[in-house]
Simulated assay, not measured.
Amino acid sequence: MIAILGAIWVMFGEDPARDQGARGEATFEGLADRINDAAGIAVGQGDTTTHLNKVGGEWRVIERDGYKADRAVVNDFLRGLALSERREPKTSNEQRFDKLGLGDDALAIKVLDSDDNALLSFQMGTRKDSPNGRSLTYIFQKKDTRSWLVSGLANTSADPAWWLDAEVLDVAENRFSRISYGDIRLERPLGDSKYVIADLVEGEIAQADWQLRDPARVLSNLNFDDVRKMGNPLTDPVGALSAETYDGLAVRLTLFEISGAVWAQVSADYDADHADEGESGTLPAAPADGAAEAAAIIERTRGWLFKLSDYDAKVLLRKRADFLAGKPTEE
């Protein structure tokens, strides 16, 4: 028997004590039946590792002080693991793993249950998306004899920011009535699609309509690139703005420059009296409970700073001159 096993190893380079697997089999045997037991995820690459824990039904990113993870991203990741199938066996020579992205740059992935028992552990290499919307990825599990090309795995990253639920605001653009920062106030009368600059000085000419709408577009679906706990003392603000809707919601942003990036502190409140004013109107996009909307924004943003994209920061830091196509002529 020893001679036979030795001959197999010499001929095929396979360790008969390990699982060779077969095309069409589940990549992670038995995982589909236990995927709902997942309570921890670790994704490492080089010196960076992201840990996610399931707390009270919500996934949290540990390296971001427990900020909420994007539920859809986590669900896609776990679903892909459960449904993945082996498509094509690849090299068993670990010296050639670099060509498959399974060398030093590979993602080291672990999924744990609530008792910290490993549901699976593997290396994830190069991933390719195909025109039919299906992905193929190179992976290696230590229990296998070789690497494999497998289907179904979702895109993944060891960067903690990649896992975050990046939504800050979700307010329909047509709800905004007034946006103010510094000495500039943009107003939009109810029923009008265009903003105007309040108190234009003689000789000043406003920029094109689409440029006046930029702040509303940015604020209506404000997302962030990263998040951090607010600490004291904060640096002096580099900007501030407020936005009001016809139906009583008010959102305020205070902007700080930290380590070469712009970070926003966000707050909100709701004015029922303003919502009841005749001129405020009621919009189809307005929530049934404006106070609850404001409370949800406060709950999501209190105590946090949000790193803005370069484009969003540029728009929200505009000065009066940035909204003008012409300026008064100096005598």
Rank of each mutant, 00 (worst) to 15 (best):
E293G: 01
N174F: 05
N155K: 13
W263E: 05
D65P: 00
G239R: 02
L253Y: 01
D183L: 07
G24K: 06
I258H: 01
K307W: 04
V201R: 15
I62L: 12
A288N: 15
R71F: 12
D15G: 03
R23M: 10
A72C: 00
I258D: 03
D199E: 14
Y195S: 07
R86E: 06
S177R: 12
D15V: 04
A264F: 06
D209W: 10
S84R: 01
D47T: 11
T156H: 03
K327Q: 14
N155A: 13
S193T: 12
V201Q: 14
D214S: 14
G133N: 04
D165S: 14
S84Y: 03
S180R: 15
T91N: 07
A325I: 04
Q207H: 11
W163V: 05
T48Y: 02
T282H: 11
Q211F: 12
R18D: 03
R86Q: 09
W9A: 13
E279A: 06
P160A: 10
S259I: 06
I109T: 03
S121I: 04
P284S: 13
E244G: 03
D192V: 15
D214V: 03
E293L: 15
S151I: 08
T329L: 13
R213Y: 04
W304M: 05
D289K: 10
N221I: 06
D310K: 14
